[in-house]
Design a protein around this nucleic acid. Structure first.
Lengths: 221, 221, 221, 221
DNA sequence: AATGAATGAGCTTTCATTCAT
DNA sequence: GATGAATGAAAGCTCATTCAT
């Protein structure tokens, strides 16, 4: 039995090491893309940043392209997990509260930070030449939109006559959030998360003025 | 005198040839970035697309990096020229009309097309690693914002008490337009320019409900 | 005593396992050379074909070069054993019968098969760059020649005046057999072992027309 | 007109240089295969032997595999040209003379030399894993056989009743020549071209004893 | 004894740049 | 001014070997 435990521990130690290395490679690659761009994110740079051997990339990901794809997937998964946690945390609240929470998640430093956003843009830049990236960088278009639409439908008490309004609000707010990300990417120093949050809420509210109450006063710096 | 004229003509022909080559290289590079991404836009590909010799890039731009920078500048110039023409054309109209015209310019196929947008994203992806690109891809932040702010200030008759509102509207609409571009980039087939235009106007109007009149009914498909 | 027996059994089992692994590696390497050429016979491929772990090659052969040398030796040993068994089996027969038997051994599928022959050629290709292979792939030149010469000398009743003829016949028949192997290697599908055997006998007979009797009619398809 | 001539000369100078470089690469690769085996014939070694730049291989042959194929083709072409020249030179002679000439060509240092033969074996070693080589190293099987058969048919005055004999003689002599090459490859120092030539003629003669006249005495050292 | 993750030297290939023509 | 052959640094990848488990 001791032997079994030992064997297990051995296995786990190896597996743990492998997993840790995989993560280190993903992180080092992200960092390299952030610092040097996809063009400059060479195996040499990743090796340098990670402190791991050159050969380990092929060992874990077979090819550099595979590694890049894994980074894209990792980014998308992290993003999805982030807003879904917020949805779960606020799922018993009022639509307005849930909306507030969802927008906050989308603007939170956990996902909206300089490194992440640089990587989003890098992969998005190549959706035409690398169609395999599209699925990962398009995530806001599928489940996120559904969640947002659900909130807006809740605001109008699922009134089918106003469903088109809910859809327009969804599209508009999604675009607005995308624009906020772009703004952050290009001017991270001047970006104000709270102001962005208020602007998003303001726009959302403007679609359904009667369903938001009490209307807080517009607070502008 | 004949000789002088001849020399001139020769010179002009040469200059014209030179300019044409320069343009061909810029266009071929744009096409290469669109088709293969910045990583895949090699001198070989540009040579292949342009039909010009390999050596010509060095001849006209000294280095490939210079060529890329020239492409970025060309893109930015084209963008700026496009919206400024719209501003000039509508400068005697009402603020609402000018706003309409400015948004339409920003969403027009002249600037918002698959190739251009792919290049925008490509350069934006590298603003951290190539700071020299930032200036070109950031153009909406400077003059364009000023123009937009001017329109909103016109809407509120330059009431200084409401200047903060004008600024918020400017930031919000800029972000929204950026988001529209992103949406177009990721889903060009499903993108509806008219719907985007209406959504932008709707949001602008929501900031100054009393200044837009008569308020057209919200037309949603 | 039980313990001793146990220890012995364990040891034997280990030894048997070791030997089996060694053989598996030799066979897998041969197969890899046959399928992928020496260049393509990587440790990875050998590992894949054998089902044994990567590290086992170092364990049993210290290095891949050693493994290759062991394959060469194994091939040579197998070849030698094959014709020597035939010599033993026919050693009481007439020279003609012994010759027939020796040629048949050289053309038998036990040694003349696609995989073996591919490996012979692979090692022979490298006798200049890897002199250590020469000894193994040259085997026909030593003992085999002696055996053949012995048969021819028997045919001429060891008449010293005709020894030069026996030597020429030996050289010629050896070359002819080599040529048959080459023919088989390059066109295994069209190769006819019986025809090859008859051609070899025909040539041998032509050296000593009076010593072969009764002369069978030339049977050609 | 001077300019045209100049342009031509420029073009020719370039083309000549290109062709010379191509040849240098083929030769250096052959030398590398001879010295280090196909496995050891790395781009580095070829670069070292040729004195040309590393990049030139890709420039002229796109890939190393292509270069190897070109070496195989070059070898085959050289071989074919060699025996065909002999056929042309002796085409008005008697069959026996033509046979003598053809065998001599096959054993001449122009084709049967250590470097060439090492390369033949190298490519033949890989016919299973690299089927594209087969065509080049198989040349003796097509046109050469036809030429040999033609000579034997001449010997028997195209007597259709003896055509099978002519075919057997062709196959046997081809195999014998292959065997001579193998013998030369494995023991170049002990190889005697004249003896090989005599052995081949002797075997050929043994097929058609009545058609060779006068029969020279068997001259053995 | 056996495993397979890890290593890094060395391989082929790509590529921006140079320069003779 | 224009060309494209030539260059060699640097890239990604392969591979035999090592070694902790």
């Amino acid at each position: 039995m001791d032997e079994l435990v030992d064997a297990d521990e051995v296995l786990n130690a190896r597996d743990r090491g492998k997993k840790r290395h995989r993560r280190q490679l993903l992180d080092a690659t992200s960092e390299a893309i952030y610092l040097y761009g996809v063009r400059g994110a060479t195996i040499d740079k990743i090796h340098e940043i990670s402190g791991l051997s050159r050969g380990m990339i092929s060992l874990h990901f077979q090819s550099k392209e595979n590694l890049l794809k894994a980074v894209a997937k990792d980014l998308a998964d992290e993003y999805t997990q982030n807003w879904q946690e917020s949805v779960i945390a606020s799922h018993e609240g009022e639509p307005v509260e849930r909306l507030n929470s969802l927008i906050a998640a989308d603007l939170s430093p956990a996902v909206l930070n300089e490194r992440n956003i640089a990587i989003w843009f890098s992969f998005r830049a190549e959706v035409n030449s690398h169609p395999e990236y599209r699925h990962y960088v398009n995530s806001r278009d599928s489940e996120f939109r559904v969640a947002l639409l659900g909130i807006f439908r809740g605001l109008i008490s699922d009134d089918p006559d106003r469903d088109a309004e809910a859809k327009l609000a969804t599209n508009t707010l999604t675009a607005l959030l995308e624009g906020m990300w772009t703004d952050f990417h290009l001017n991270p120093k001047n970006f104000d998360r709270d102001e962005a949050q208020r602007a998003c809420l303001y726009v959302a509210r403007s679609f359904f003025p009667d369903n938001f109450e009490p209307q807080p006063p517009l607070d502008i710096q």
